[in-house]
């Protein structure tokens, strides 16, 4: 098929950037979206132009590195799918596809479609862990975890930290990302001792990074490639309220 791509090109953080159209012939429906961009880049290199920079690594939907807003939707039209697993059979001949980076002040553009997501690492640094230095662990079987809790914790823990939730949120809020970690650790017995300090510190860091506030629009869950449940946000809120009460 033949496609027109409108791609955000921005040389570096200081460049204002602009949309640039590209025509692409011979796109196979079996290609992944990123393979389609590979084809474009191979052509650009041979023509002596600067290839389009985009983040990607595992290309199997788990590392969370790929990050494109395709026609206004993070990770494109197919639900529960990362860009790297999106295939061109979901598009048709003659389509015009707009490709943009994640848009958020907390995710500044580095180049073209590549953004800096280190804000997420700093949110984890603020408390997204269990303090269990190596060697200090008790026997694994000594703490049973109810199966239902383990399941719910896993559902939250499956977050890949891609940032699609922020990109989709009309407020550019990082609530779903933060809530996923709060929920994962809050449901495990190992996470209890630090539970309320954790939520306070992580939310404070989230705010400090310049993300927007959550207004419960649910856009985050809808685009999440791993389907992190919306209830994680409510669980975070519950913990935060309790932490505030405890503090006062």
């Amino acid at each position: 098929m033949k496609l027109t791509l409108k791609i955000w090109r921005q040389k570096n953080a200081d460049d204002p950037g602009r949309m640039v159209p590209y025509e692409l012939d011979d796109v196979s429906p079996d290609m992944s979206f990123l393979e389609m961009l590979d084809v474009l880049n191979e052509r650009l290199i041979v023509e002596g132009e600067d290839p389009v920079a985009f983040d990607h690594d595992c290309r199997e939907g788990i590392c969370g590195m790929c990050s494109l807003v395709i026609d206004g939707t993070p990770h494109g039209p197919q639900q529960a799918t990362t860009t790297c697993q999106l295939h061109m059979r979901h598009f048709k001949d003659g389509d015009v596809i707009t490709i943009e980076p994640w848009r958020a002040a907390a995710f500044p553009v580095i180049k073209d479609l590549v953004v800096d997501r280190s804000a997420f690492d700093r949110i984890i640094q603020a408390g997204g862990y269990v303090s269990a230095p190596t060697g200090s662990a008790p026997e694994a079987a000594s703490i049973p975890v109810p199966q239902a809790d383990a399941h719910a914790a896993f559902d939250a823990a499956t977050c890949i930290g891609c940032g699609a939730c922020v990109a989709a949120c009309p407020n550019a809020s990082a609530m779903l990302f933060t809530a996923a970690k709060i929920t994962h650790l809050g449901l495990m017995p190992q996470g209890q001792p630090e539970r309320y300090g954790r939520v306070t510190a992580m939310v404070a860091q989230m705010d400090a990074e310049g993300f927007g506030g959550c207004t419960n629009t649910g856009e985050c869950t809808a685009v999440c490639p791993k389907g992190i449940p919306f209830e994680t946000i409510s669980r975070l809120n519950a913990d935060l309220l309790k932490a505030t009460r405890k503090a006062s």
Binding site: D71, E100, A106, N171, G212, G213, T217, G218, A222, V223
Partner: peptide, 22 residues
């Protein structure tokens, strides 16, 4: 203040009209 914060949090808007999933 939420709206202002939201605007600060996304200084550059999307060119494509964001498709809503919700």
């Amino acid at each position: 203040s939420l709206a202002r914060r939201a605007r600060r949090a996304r200084p550059v808007r999307y060119a494509a009209r964001p498709t809503t999933q919700e």
